[in-house]
C-alpha cells in the first residue's frame, strides 16, 4: 500500500530538458522564480507563461501529468484568489453588496496572484523534479554550493546525507509495510477507532522502524568506512558534469526572461499595477 507513494516524481526520458546539465536546470528554475516574483504587468506574465509552454514542449512530459501536479494546490489557489479579490481596495468600484466590495484592481491582483502560483508550481515541476533524477539534483546542488566550502560549510556531507536518504526511502517503505503486516498478524488494527486510537496504533510501527533504521545506519557506516570513505576531501567523481552550448543557451534564456519582465514592468503598455 505504501509502495504507491512516488517520491520526487521523476519521469525518466531522453528529451533535451532531461539531457541538460542539472546545474543548468537549477539556475534556470531560480531565474524563472525570480522573474515570476518581479512580474508586475500582464504582458510580463504572458511572457513567463509562454516560456513555460516552450520548455514544457521540450520536456515531452504529458500535459496530464503536469496538470495533476496542480491538484494538491487547488485549495490554496482558490483561497488566495478570493482573499485578493475581496480585500484589495482600489479606485474603480465594480460591485458592492452589504460589506462586500469588489474593485477592478482586486480582480487584476487576484488573477495575477493565482496565475503566478500556478506557473510557479508547474514550472518547478517541469524544470526540476519531473526531468531531473534526485541523484543528479543532489550532485548539482553540491557543485553549485561548492564555493561555500571556503567558509567551512559542509556541502559534501549534506549532499551525501541527501543521497543516502534517497537511497533508503524505498528500503524503509518496504520495511514499514513488513512491520505493519507483522503487527496486523498479531491483531493490531490501523484503520478503526478515533484519531487518538489510530495515532496510538502507530507506535508499535514506529519504534521497530526506528530501531531498524539505527541498526542500518550503523551497518552502513561500517560498510562505507570499509570502502575507504573519509569525507569529501580527495574524492573524485565518476560522472563529471559538463555544460554544453545548449546549457549556456538555456541559462541565457533565464536571465533574458528576468530582464524582459523588469523591462515590461516599466513600459506603459498593458495593465500596470
Amino acid at each position: 500500500m505504501l509502495k504507491d507513494v512516488t517520491l520526487g516524481q521523476y519521469f525518466p526520458g531522453e528529451s533535451p530538458l532531461h539531457r541538460a546539465d542539472p546545474r543548468t536546470k537549477v539556475v534556470l528554475s531560480l531565474c524563472y522564480i525570480i522573474a515570476l516574483f518581479c512580474v508586475k504587468s500582464a504582458l510580463g506574465m504572458l511572457l513567463c507563461a509562454l516560456t513555460l509552454v516552450c520548455f514544457h514542449a521540450a520536456s515531452r512530459i504529458p500535459l496530464r501529468t503536469v496538470l495533476s501536479g496542480v491538484k494538491p494546490i487547488l485549495f490554496i489557489l482558490a483561497f488566495t484568489f478570493l482573499i485578493n479579490l475581496f480585500w484589495t481596495r482600489g479606485e474603480t468600484l465594480l460591485f458592492s453588496w452589504k460589506f462586500i466590495r469588489i474593485y477592478r484592481e482586486g480582480i487584476v491582483t487576484a488573477l495575477m496572484m493565482a496565475v503566478r502560483i500556478l506557473l510557479l508550481v508547474t514550472g518547478s515541476g517541469i524544470f526540476l523534479t519531473y526531468t531531473t533524477s534526485p541523484i543528479m539534483l543532489t550532485d548539482a546542488i553540491e557543485q553549485l554550493l561548492s564555493p561555500l566550502k571556503k567558509i567551512k560549510v559542509p556541502v559534501h556531507d549534506f549532499s551525501m546525507m541527501m543521497t543516502i536518504a534517497l537511497r533508503f526511502i524505498p528500503t524503509l517503505i518496504e520495511e514499514t509495510d513488513r512491520i505493519m503486516d507483522a503487527q496486523k498478524a498479531r491483531g493490531a488494527s490501523f484503520s478503526t477507532g478515533g484519531l487518538i486510537r489510530r495515532a496510538k496504533a502507530l507506535i508499535p510501527i514506529l519504534i521497530p522502524l526506528f530501531v531498524c533504521a539505527f541498526k542500518r545506519a550503523d551497518d552502513l557506516a561500517v560498510a562505507m568506512e570499509c570502502r575507504c570513505y573519509r569525507g569529501g576531501e580527495g574524492r573524485t567523481r565518476m560522472t563529471r558534469l559538463r555544460f554544453s552550448p545548449a546549457d549556456y543557451l538555456m541559462m541565457l534564456s533565464g536571465v533574458l526572461l528576468i530582464a524582459a519582465v523588469i523591462l515590461l514592468n516599466h513600459l506603459p503598455v498593458g495593465i500596470a499595477l
Partner: peptide, 17 residues
C-alpha cells in the same frame, strides 16, 4: 545495508571515488 547510491553503477563507483 551496504549499498550507498540510488543507481547500481554509482554505487560501484563509490569506492574508487
Amino acid at each position: 545495508n551496504q549499498l550507498v547510491a540510488t543507481v547500481v553503477e554509482e554505487d560501484i563507483a563509490f569506492g574508487p571515488e
